[in-house]
């Protein structure tokens, strides 16, 4: 599965469109990490637990998106976009979407 955020896959041509594919996941960190982050919030700087959480969750969203594209019979996803929103206290939704295509 080739994934790209450009309108077409560089060096290849699109032969078939399958439509929009998307994947999303909602994640929250366990309380221990939240307490650590609260402490870190006093001195500022990177909240490593949250960075890891979002990286992981975004990977999961992309995996779901590519499974969906595979089911359709596509071999690439172009023009991938990401959206992140806070849906509840301490939880975030990671959403990835793109266009499933076949390239040659």
């Amino acid at each position: 599965m080739i994934i790209s955020n450009t309108q077409e896959i560089p060096g290849k041509t699109i032969v078939e469109f399958f439509g929009v594919v998307s994947g999303s996941t909602v994640r929250a960190k366990h309380i221990g990490k939240d307490i650590m982050a609260t402490l870190k919030n006093v001195v500022g700087g990177e909240l490593k637990g949250y960075t890891a959480l979002l990286t992981e969750a975004r990977g999961e969203a992309m995996r779901r998106m590519s499974y969906q594209a595979e089911d359709m019979g596509a071999n690439a996803i172009v023009n991938v976009r990401f959206a992140t929103s806070s849906v509840a206290q301490g939880a975030a939704e990671l959403f990835a979407y793109g266009t499933a295509v076949t390239v040659e």
Partner: peptide, 16 residues
Amino acid sequence: ESCELVMGNVVISQDY
């Protein structure tokens, strides 16, 4: 020749 999506992220907070 080939392409791939790459990303990097960081969560940062301001001090008190």
